[in-house]
Simulated assay, not measured.
Amino acid sequence: MAVEIERKFLVKGEVWRRHQSEAALLTGTIYRQGYLSTTKGKSVRVRLAGNQGYLTIKGLTKGVSRAEYEYTIPAEDAQEMLDTLCEPPLIEKTRYKIEFAGLLWEIDEFAGENQGLIVAEVELTDENQVIELPDWIDIEVSDDLRYYNVNLSQHPYSQWSKEGVQETGV
């Protein structure tokens, strides 16, 4: 079984943008994603990352682990599914990748309905893996279901002060 072990953190300030090589600016990839199915404990997601499409099935999160199956699909198919099959609003974000202390951190700067939210994720090989946190990391939100993309699609960050947030647990 494919298992994703991931921890999520809020990002503080703009310091993270300075973690770049002298030779190249920190550049990100634009992501658009939506959900074909979301039920308690599982979701089916369509994603367009740059010019590559993906179909991803995720299971219930237990601790910081969950079953995850991801398959590449043609970008045209992903775009058509996003436009015609996924419930709005779509998740829009730019993902930046930064290596720190031997791990690859993915920083998602959200746009659209989730504008203003910046979340850093790091994938681990073991739930008990000890990690060094960069100085731009704020609080951990791995256990806060509001920050799961599936929940951000149903209850966008821009609406949090206006509504109670329901979580699906995937």
Rank of each mutant, 00 (worst) to 15 (best):
E68Y: 08
Y147K: 06
T61N: 08
T94K: 09
K8H: 02
N51R: 10
E140Y: 06
E140G: 03
P134G: 04
K58M: 07
S142A: 03
S21P: 05
T27W: 13
A75G: 15
K58T: 00
D144N: 08
R18N: 12
I137E: 02
T39H: 13
T56S: 11
G102W: 05
I107V: 15
W136M: 04
A24M: 14
R45P: 02
L90W: 02
N128R: 12
Q159V: 11
I57G: 02
R32S: 03
Q20M: 15
N149C: 06
T29Y: 02
C86I: 01
Y157S: 05
E80C: 13
T39V: 15
L117N: 01
Y148L: 11
D83C: 09
G34H: 00
S21D: 15
I5V: 04
T56G: 09
Q20S: 12
D83S: 12
K8Q: 03
I30P: 11
I57H: 08
L145N: 14
P134E: 07
H155T: 11
T38D: 09
I131C: 01
Q20V: 12
E80G: 09
G13M: 04
L55G: 10
K62M: 13
E87S: 10
E132R: 14
E22N: 13
E121Y: 06
V46D: 00
F110D: 00
Q129V: 00
D77K: 12
R146Y: 03
R66Q: 07
Q166P: 04
A2T: 10
G112I: 10
E127D: 09
Q33C: 04
N51M: 10
D83A: 14
E22M: 15
P88A: 11
V165K: 10
N51H: 10
E6I: 06
T56F: 04
E163L: 11
V15Y: 09
L82V: 05
R45S: 03
T168M: 11
I131Q: 04
V165P: 00
A78M: 09
L82R: 04
K12N: 09
G169L: 07
V3T: 08
L36T: 02
A24V: 14
G116S: 04
D144C: 03
S161V: 12
E123N: 10
L90H: 03
L55E: 06
Y31V: 08
L48S: 01
Y31H: 12
G28Y: 00
A2R: 11
E113A: 13
I137W: 05
E99K: 14
D143W: 08
W160C: 12
Y31K: 02
